[in-house]
């Protein structure tokens, strides 16, 4: 069911060694974090609020140039980020948002295809404000996938969505990731979401990886016995009584 996978050393997509990041002098947010993600591996990152999940993600995305710290980060050449807000440029139509910055004569065709994959065929010419929250988030997903990244970083991409849309998005994300096989680091505060989606769940605490478990379930349904066990373990590590969650 859950196995420890401490030292993964084969050709990694992401390799982080001894990462430190701090916003003030009193204490670091990340304190010597080590992390490996294999190519094509789907990793969910959970942890209490304020433990530095976003800080780690931004470090991997190269968006933390003003934050103090040191350490070694290796990431693939093509990295794509899905933010919590869809971050579609309001002045570009959906298709233009999806292919924003994409080169090549077939960019528009690839964009259309990516939109169809996330179920937004026919909405190419809509303005972002005309899309529902879930549709905007799907368009953002299409924008990331059309770049065929080797690493997909997502910071609570479904945080603002309702439960039903989230379930649909989970299925979609799994399907897309199986088709395109990027390495994925998905930040979430939802333990169930982490187990449903990921091959591996890591739990951040005190600026280091506290728990690192592999999800090996026969089925990803919540009724699976292994699911409940894993859920209890993770909630326990988060300091929450499982039955309260």
């Amino acid at each position: 069911m859950a196995a420890d996978s401490g030292g993964l050393t084969t050709a990694a997509a992401v390799r982080v060694r001894n990462l430190h990041r701090s916003f003030n002098k009193d204490g670091g947010v990340l304190n010597g974090l080590d992390l490996d993600i294999a190519p094509g591996e789907f990793v969910a990152l959970i942890g209490r609020s304020g433990t530095g999940k976003s800080t780690l993600l931004r470090a991997l995305a190269g968006l933390d140039r003003d934050v103090a710290g040191h350490g070694r980060i290796e990431v693939p050449a093509s990295v794509s980020v899905v933010f919590q807000d869809s971050r579609l440029l309001p002045w570009k139509r959906i298709l233009d948002n999806v292919i924003f910055g994409l080169r090549g004569a077939d960019a528009a065709d690839r964009g259309r295809q990516a939109l169809a994959e996330v179920g937004l065929a026919g909405r190419e010419r809509a303005w972002p404000y005309q899309l529902s929250g879930g549709e905007q988030q799907r368009a953002a997903l299409a924008r990331s996938l059309v770049r065929e990244p080797q690493l997909l970083l997502a910071d609570e991409p479904f945080g603002a969505l309702d439960a039903l849309t989230r379930i649909r998005m989970h299925a979609l994300l799994r399907k897309l990731c199986e088709a395109h096989r990027p390495a994925v680091l998905l930040v979430t505060h939802d333990v169930d979401e982490a187990i449903v989606l990921a091959d591996r769940v890591i739990l951040l605490d005190a600026g280091v990886v506290d728990t690192d478990v592999r999800v090996e379930l026969t089925s990803r349904s919540r009724s699976d016995a292994g699911f409940a066990g894993l859920r209890t373990l993770l909630l326990d590590r988060l300091g929450v009584a499982a039955d309260a969650g």
Binding site: G62, L63, F83
Partner: peptide
């Protein structure tokens, strides 16, 4: 945030 997005898109 739009500038940040543009940075990640390269």
């Amino acid at each position: 945030r739009y500038a940040e997005l543009a940075e990640t898109i390269g």
